[in-house]
């Protein structure tokens, strides 16, 4: 197998992570629409979540939930799971604030396109 195929088959989660990251970043940078920028931001963060989860993966591992008197078993690493849970919460909070700001901007200017916005504001 060529190395490329090897990566694509065994590390596809990381490939997906890199793709999502790139797409998210591209949207943030290039999109003129503020909502799309926020979506790009979310995509960017989602890529990170995927990255963490993928890094915790262990072949044959169980979810790291240890029942009372838990037995010896293979668990996936719990730490990234916790991180992702927390990061999701943070991400939601950020998105909520972003949406609130978007509503405010739309109410004032009637547009969410950055170039139009720039024009409108330069008229003030």
């Amino acid at each position: 197998m060529t190395p490329l195929v090897d990566v694509l088959t065994s590390r596809y989660a990381y490939v997906l992570f890199a793709l999502l990251l790139g797409i998210g970043l591209y949207m943030i940078v290039s999109s003129q629409n503020l909502v799309k920028k926020v979506i790009g931001l979310n995509l960017f963060q989602t890529a990170l979540f995927l990255f963490f989860i993928a890094s915790a993966y262990l072949a044959g591992g169980q979810a790291p939930i240890v029942h009372h008197g838990g037995k010896e078993a293979t668990y996936v690493s719990p730490l990234p799971q916790v991180i992702v849970l927390t990061a999701i919460v943070v991400g939601i909070a950020v998105t909520a604030v972003a949406l609130a700001l978007l509503v405010r901007i739309y109410a004032e200017y009637g547009t969410l396109e950055e170039d139009v916005l720039r024009e409108v504001r330069s008229d003030d």
């Binding site: 970043l25 943030i28 503020l34 920028k37 926020v38 931001l41 960017f44 963060q45 990170l48 990255f51 963490f52 890094s55 990234p80 991180i83 990061a87 950020v94 604030v97 972003a98 700001l101 978007l102 405010r104 901007i105 004032e108 916005l117 504001r121």
Partner: peptide, 24 residues
């Protein structure tokens, strides 16, 4: 101010996410 805050939010969160990636 909302426009400035949103710009700050997008750039700032991207920065924080990059930090998180480094932590990962």
């Amino acid at each position: 101010a909302a426009v400035a805050a949103l710009k700050y939010l997008i750039v700032g969160t991207t920065g924080a996410s990059l930090y998180l990636l480094g932590v990962g």
